[in-house]
Amino acid sequence: MSDKLEIRNERVFSTDRATLFDTFADPDKLALWWGPEGFTNTITAFDLKPGGDWLITMTADNGTEFHNRWTFDNVVEGELIRMTHHEPVHVFTLDMRFAAEPRGARLSWRMLFDRTPENEELERFLHAANEQNFDRLERLLEERKRER
Rank of each mutant, 00 (worst) to 15 (best):
F92C: 01
T93R: 09
T93L: 03
P88E: 11
R69V: 12
D114A: 11
H86T: 01
R69I: 09
P102E: 05
V76F: 02
R97A: 06
E121Y: 07
Q132I: 03
D114Q: 15
F98Y: 14
W70R: 04
R115P: 00
R110N: 14
T84K: 04
H86I: 05
V75E: 01
P88T: 13
T71P: 01
E87W: 02
H90A: 09
V89S: 15
N119S: 06
A99S: 12
A128K: 03
H127W: 12
H67C: 08
S108R: 14
H90F: 12
H67L: 13
W109G: 13
N68E: 05
H67A: 07
F92V: 03
T71R: 15
A99I: 03
V91Q: 07
E101Q: 15
L94R: 00
R97G: 02
N74M: 13
D114M: 13
T71L: 05
L126H: 13
P88K: 05
G78T: 02
R106E: 02
L122N: 12
E131L: 14
R103A: 15
A99M: 11
F113K: 00
D135P: 02
N74S: 11
D135H: 13
F134S: 12
G78S: 01
N133W: 13
N133P: 01
D95H: 04
E121G: 14
A99H: 05
V75G: 00
R97N: 11
N74K: 15
H127Y: 11
L80C: 00
A128L: 10
D73Y: 00
V91T: 14
L107G: 08
H85C: 09
R136D: 08
H67W: 13
R82C: 05
R115A: 09
V76S: 04
V75Y: 00
W109P: 00
N130V: 00
L126A: 09
R69P: 04
H85F: 03
P88G: 05
R97H: 10
A105G: 07
P88W: 10
P117N: 08
D135K: 10
D114E: 14
T116V: 07
E120Y: 02
R136M: 03
E120V: 08
R106D: 04
F98W: 09
L80I: 01
M83G: 01
M96F: 05
H86P: 01
A105R: 00
W70L: 15
E121S: 06
T93F: 04
V75A: 00
R103K: 12
L112N: 15
D135A: 15
F66V: 07
N74T: 15
W70F: 07
